[in-house]
């Protein structure tokens, strides 16, 4: 039997529906709610059952077609991982060094990861852009951007 994308998808959603249904039991009910025709658990239980039934339907109707097999060849997962890691680091940098420096760091690293190596281009496409955005937000739109924990630690609030 060939395991296809439909089989994998069906199995994942079947597991999700079971887990979802299991945690539905943890939803607290207000006193007397269990006698009401509709309470906080009603829709989640219905969705868990519907999700389970549809997943089983997908698993049963999935054809073992070779063309539908999941192939991960030719995809650049490493680059995507690095970029998403960069996004996570950007979030951390926002808290610690503030919007302006975090943006410059994110853009330069992003350009670099995607293959741009010219220093002049790296700086020109990031620093003026970051300053421009920061200026527009703080000075023109009057949006408050926190300076970053590191700045507060060093220079005080």
């Amino acid at each position: 039997m060939i395991v296809t994308k439909d089989h994998i998808g069906g199995l994942i959603f079947l597991c999700l529906s079971v887990i979802y249904g299991y945690y539905t039991g943890d939803i607290a009910l207000l006193p007397g709610d269990e006698y009401e025709p509709f309470n906080s658990q009603s829709l989640p239980y219905a969705l868990a059952m519907l999700g389970g039934a549809l997943s089983l339907g997908l698993l049963i109707t999935a054809k073992s077609d070779l063309n539908n097999k999941l192939s991960l060849r030719g995809y650049d997962f490493l680059l995507v991982f690095k970029l998403l890691l960069l996004v996570v680091l950007f979030a951390l940098a926002l808290e610690w060094v503030g919007f302006l420096l975090a943006t410059v760091f994110f853009l330069i690293s992003g350009y670099w990861l995607l293959g741009e190596r010219r220093t002049k281009m790296l700086l020109l496409a990031s620093v003026p852009f970051a300053i421009g955005i920061w200026f527009a937000l703080t000075q023109l739109l009057d949006v408050y951007l926190a300076p970053g924990q590191l700045y507060i630690l060093l220079f005080g609030g």
């Binding site: 999700l16 979802y20 997943s55």
Partner: peptide, 27 residues
């Protein structure tokens, strides 16, 4: 079937957070 599963998945995501009718937190 895939589209229907995704619709149910979307409905499941919508249930995360405080229930609008009872005020009870869910998931």
């Amino acid at each position: 079937i895939k589209a229907m599963i995704m619709t149910v998945f979307g409905l499941m995501i919508a249930t995360v957070g405080t229930d609008k009718t009872s005020g009870v937190p869910r998931f």
